[in-house]
């Protein structure tokens, strides 16, 4: 094939790929900016005729979903902090202190195996537990479940980050007479902060996106999270497309921004350290 033909072909393939992947998202955002009147036009439009933010106001204010947004943020932040603390307490001894190979590989394997449990199988007994201890429809129930289910990611990401910090740096502080706690606080923690932040961002984005647990373990806006509210917008009898699209857009924007911040670590996290960014 002549060079020029091949160039045109590959460009065409890439352009088509980009269009296929980008168009649905474009249409979501466009729909979220349409007026109610425009929804009932005979043929759906590709551009909003009179762009409006009314659907966002309707979703957040009229439908009261800003409360769900707040629930999502509270549940996500608490679960992220908890998961990071637990993961740190587990990975610190695994990476900085002498520990039996058997125990070490058991802990890491166990964490990874959690990743393979289908949440629906787990939520059936959790539902019973949560109801019997009076945590049904309460954010703490979600926070605990989210903490456990993001541990695989948190443990494996932190393990990767901690392994990259040379042991000698901490040891030097110990030799200089610092206690282990002090060495941890003044030497290791600052060096690990980037990793903690990256892991925190990714864990939060997962908490934010979680649907099934929240769907089953909550019942009213008191504890419902935003994705559950979005699902409610979809399955209502009369589908109000622009509100639904606005809800979807809000649900997307936050993880998108966070992931752009942590973009160098996303794939490392998702593949448990197999893929490394340079």
């Amino acid at each position: 094939m002549p060079r020029i033909v091949r160039r045109i072909l590959t460009t065409a393939v890439l352009v088509v790929a980009v269009l296929v992947f980008a168009f649905p998202l474009y249409y979501l955002v466009v729909t979220s900016l349409k007026t109610k009147a425009e929804l009932y036009s005979a043929v759906p439009t590709l551009f909003p005729q009179n762009p409006t933010i009314a659907p966002y106001v309707s979703v957040l204010v009229t439908r009261g979903m800003s409360g769900l947004l707040l629930n999502s943020v509270i549940a996500g932040l608490s679960a992220t902090v908890l998961a990071l603390a637990v993961a740190f307490a587990i990975t610190y001894p695994l990476t900085r202190l002498p520990i039996g190979r058997g125990l070490r590989s058991f802990v890491l394997n166990w964490a990874l195996s959690l990743r393979f449990l289908p949440p629906i199988a787990v939520v059936i007994p959790y539902f019973t537990i949560v109801r019997s201890v009076g945590l049904y429809n309460q954010l703490p129930a979600l926070i605990l479940v989210y903490t456990i289910f993001n541990l695989p990611l948190a443990i494996w990401m932190l393990k990767g980050f901690l392994e990259e910090i040379p042991l000698e740096i901490e040891e030097a502080a110990l030799v200089d007479g610092a206690t282990r706690w002090r060495a941890f606080r003044t030497v290791l923690l600052p060096l690990a902060s980037t990793g903690l932040l990256a892991a925190g961002i990714i864990v939060f984005a997962f908490d934010w996106a979680e649907f099934l647990f929240a769907f089953i373990l909550t019942a009213t806006p008191q504890a419902m999270t935003f994705p559950v509210g979005v699902q409610g917008l979809v399955t209502q009898f009369e589908i109000i497309w622009n509100d639904m699209a606005a809800g979807g857009t809000i649900a997307i924007v936050i993880p998108l921004l966070l992931m752009l911040l942590a973009r160098r670590y996303v794939m490392t996290g998702l593949t448990f350290g197999v893929i490394r960014e340079k």
């Binding site: 979501l28 699902q231 639904m244 993880p255 794939m267």
Partner: peptide, 25 residues
């Protein structure tokens, strides 16, 4: 990376707008 980080529930919404009768694009 964008499709990967989007909440599944929002992905459902996106494709509802693509496939639904009457309004689907």
């Amino acid at each position: 990376m964008i499709p990967i980080v989007i909440p599944q529930i929002a992905v459902g919404v996106v494709f509802r707008l693509v496939y639904a009768p009457d309004y689907g694009i």
